[in-house]
Amino acid sequence: MKKLSYILLTGLFITAISCSKGTENKPQPVKPDDKPQTTNPVFTAADAAKAYTAFNRYYYNPSKKLYYSTTLQEGLGAIWTQAIYWDMAMNVYERTKDPAQLAMVNDMYQGGFNQYDGYNWDNTTTWFIYDDMMWWVMALARANQLTGKPEYLQKAIAGFNRVWAGSYDSVDGGMFWDFQHSGKNACINYPTVIAAMRLYKITGDASYLDKAKLIYGWAKANLFDVTNGRVADHKIGNNPPGYEDYTYNQGTAIGAAMALYNQTKDAAYLGDAKLAADYTKTKMGTNGILPAEGDFNEQGVLKAIFAQYIMQLITDGGQTQYKDWVKTNINTGWNNRDKDRDLTWRNYALPAPRGVMQSYESSSVVTFMQLYLTTK
């Protein structure tokens, strides 16, 4: 992950360690002159399958068993985004129950194993930021829940322990984003809660539940505006929280709250999740359409993460008031796809480019479709 932004603090520039990603040196996409399409037809299960097939056709590397960063197919996508694409593969399997899709889920584990030193969490060249590791820990735990393969759980536990030992601040609380302990970000704290709760569900080890509650409490006190549900991107030392609106931070805050709500049935967690969802719906984006994050950088994947957890709020939390909003976003993005390639992109409200595109920006509508249709 790359450092993106800078903030002025006490007369000095201090890096604001946003986990959002920087720009790649790739050709900019060519945009058509088509008018946006925001109406019917409504997407179907056949469309969801078509979208996933297209995503794989243009981005999946079958020999590496991981995804390219762009349609140029010149190099793999960023390490942390592969875990998000693995989630997508699991979503498709949960929707279809297709044995071939389960085989792909297992293939992607092997792809990560081969590419990332066998998930050797002590390799500080492969793994150089804590949240990169935690995205994989979350996905590994989920893959164990889906497949029952013990090696997935073993890797998840080892990764969680490695991150906890290096990232947790036992004095002031919270999780540091990077090895240098320069700040504590939403992108490590809320995923830690989600990972801990998955491991608790699998193992029954109450220490995971304790850690999840501990980190959630810190995050709510330091990264969450309880008046409106806005999630801060980071907290550096004793400085005020750095508020930058990103859908994945809103999403993982929802996911962390839902994981604890599902276990404890404490309505306060559900209230937090709804507040975060309401902020995203009413304050981010335009006319109800989610923001177009990711101007040819890794931020394009952020809405794929948001999709995962807003759908949990709808299904596990019974908050069906968000379904029409989600459906409108899916329909808008799908109807504005590049119809020659069936590739969607980051800006749902405008026609997709027909030139070079990134897997990051093409991932979120595909993810939304799988999850939405699974819950119907």
Rank of each mutant, 00 (worst) to 15 (best):
A304E: 00
V137C: 05
K211L: 11
K2E: 09
S170H: 10
P291C: 07
N228W: 03
F296H: 08
Q299S: 11
K327H: 07
Q154S: 14
A206N: 11
G11W: 08
F55V: 11
K376H: 06
A257E: 04
R230V: 04
G111T: 02
N228M: 04
A78Y: 14
P291S: 06
E74D: 09
G255I: 05
A83S: 15
G159I: 12
A352K: 04
T203V: 10
A100V: 14
A277M: 01
N287G: 11
W325V: 14
Q37S: 08
G22L: 04
G333Y: 00
F160V: 02
K220G: 03
A257V: 05
F306E: 02
E151A: 04
A212Q: 06
D34A: 11
I7N: 05
L270V: 02
E24V: 10
Q115A: 13
I254R: 00
K283C: 10
S364W: 00
N40A: 15
P27E: 03
I254K: 00
Q28G: 09
L270F: 02
D278A: 09
N238R: 06
S167V: 11
Q180H: 09
D340S: 15
V171F: 01
C187R: 08
A212I: 11
G333W: 00
A219F: 10
R142Y: 00
W334S: 10
N249H: 03
K323L: 14
G174L: 10
A219V: 08
D316I: 05
A48G: 04
T192P: 01
Y246V: 07
S364G: 09
L102M: 15
K2P: 02
G317L: 04
D225E: 05
K155Q: 03
D117N: 14
E293M: 06
L275K: 12
N114P: 04
N123T: 11
A89H: 10
K35S: 08
A273H: 03
F176Q: 05
L313R: 03
D210S: 13
S170T: 14
Y269N: 02
L373N: 07
Y372P: 02
Y322R: 12
L72T: 13
L72E: 15
N40Y: 15
N336S: 13
K235T: 02
L302Q: 10
R198C: 01
G300K: 00
W218N: 04
K97R: 15
F13Q: 11
E151W: 08
K281D: 05
F179C: 03
T315M: 04
L371T: 06
Y246T: 09
Q180A: 13
I188P: 01
T71L: 02
C187T: 07
M108H: 08
L270T: 02
T286V: 15
D122M: 07
L290Y: 06
G75V: 06
K31M: 07
K283N: 13
Q110D: 10
R57W: 05
S182L: 14
G355S: 06
T374Y: 12
K21Y: 07
Q299K: 11
W334A: 07
K64A: 14
F368C: 03
T286K: 09
Q115R: 15
T332W: 00
D245P: 06
L223Y: 08
A186E: 05
K35I: 01
N91T: 13
L66T: 03
S167M: 09
D338E: 03
T15M: 06
L66Q: 08
N238A: 12
A51Y: 03
L290G: 04
N144E: 13
N91S: 15
N123F: 12
Q101W: 10
